[in-house]
Write a protein that binds this DNA or RNA. Sequence first.
RNA 1: GGCGCGGUACCCAAGCGGCUAAGGGAGAGGUCUGCAAAACCUCGAUUCGUCGGUUCGAGUCCGACCCGCGCCUCCA
Length: 465
Amino acid sequence: MIRFYNTLSGKTEEFKPLRPGQVGLYTCGPTVYDYPHIGNYRAYIFEDILKRFLIFSGFKMTHVMNITDVDDKTIKGANVLGLSLNDYTKKYIEAFFEDLKVLRILPADYYPRATEHIEDMVRMVRGLLDKGYAYLKDGSVYFSLIRFPDYGKLSKINKEELKAGARVESDEYEKESVYDFVLWKKARPGEPCWETELGPGRPGWHIECSAMSTRYLGPTFDIHCGGIDNIFPHHENEIAQSEAYYGQKFVNYWLHCHHLVVDGEKMSKSKGNFYTLRDLLARKIDPVDLRYFLLSTHYRKMLNFTFDNLEQAKASRQRIIDFVYVLQHQPLPETSQTESASALVASALSNFQDSLADDLNISAALAALFEFIREINSRLARNELSRQAADQVLTAIYQMDKVLAVLPEKKEEELPAEILKKIEQREQARREKNFALADSIRQELLQQGIVLEDTREGVRWKKIN
RNA sequence: GGCGCGGUACCCAAGCGGCUAAGGGAGAGGUCUGCAAAACCUCGAUUCGUCGGUUCGAGUCCGACCCGCGCCUCCA
């Protein structure tokens, strides 16, 4: 049984998709006005683990992630550079897809862009007007909260208390009530706009997700994800728009991931603790180490990014990598003592799966993996593992890695001929018991980020950063 | 003011009423090794922010308090 914590109910619930074996998933994507920061990627990696786990569990996924390519920030950015909206966002959209690849985030089935779904949004806004949930004022359309009594059910926000809130900024647009939010913004000079039956203008932010999610997944779908900061107002507004328009439940399970902070504080450009993936790559951080770091803490817990914590994650991941390497390369006896290994493999896999099934308890899942590694290593040290058993273990590890995606690519990395020559020179020196030379070569290669390990089966090298 | 999250060993982090409080990192000792590295073995919290309460039994439930953090119409 798979269980998830549902923000809507505030409880952990059994997961039952609308259609057996199939899951519709919508995840809030980037606003492409700049490079995403590593906090954004925490959310996307959480969603990736969720999706990979559901696939691992046998579900067929339909995953939609929106790309917000028209909003105040993209418009402003484009205007500053004197570019068209499309020319401006293109660069960031491409960068986003590159980042997803290096972080091993599985691609969504659809990446709808707001600018390509104006019609869907207009249809919905039109419908909301017709049903009396929205009103037109001064060329813009607003959603009226007093017409939607369920408002606040996701964020547990009380409408009456909203006005007592810390910040009630008056929007530049005219609303009947401060809580109302904009569905359609009338055209203004210097801003891109679309000629529609609502009049010239552009969509508000919230309507985009309502229109595009239901366009691809239907009026009611299974899972909607995002960061906790999206609960209010974004997701609350999505519910209001969608349920008012379709007259049925919008989303069954709302899953939200907590924030990433840096040195205990929220990332902000002014504090100088703001990192994009590119910043870290420039510092020679292995993106898969970052992936491991971001996934290794439960998604509903605040995660503190520090370089020290990243180092710890790297070391943990290296333990898994070394384990796999040894199993693949160490000559092992053929004698089949596989039975006891089969039991270990089975229990490791089931512990791993059961842990993730419990609201993605990644810590427990990783503990299952590491316990398994220690147990098998122990047998290896006592020379009690056969080739067949090792292969079974490897199969299990790679299965778990279908969810984690932290193991090195299968293809063997090549070293430059020059380095290989050094390694051979050192081997020669060792044979001649010229350990001073051997050690100096090892030291030299270490400077270049290559670690040499002498094993019974010969020298092994690995790269470090 | 409202809503919410967290405080478990040097660091990260599970456990959410009942076997000796998972797992990873760092550290200490040992085995192996020319030396390293990796790996294995051993050690490491009489104790879970504090104080009360409930219970046969509490990190785990209840209350109060102390610290840190987030959100309250830009935000993953």
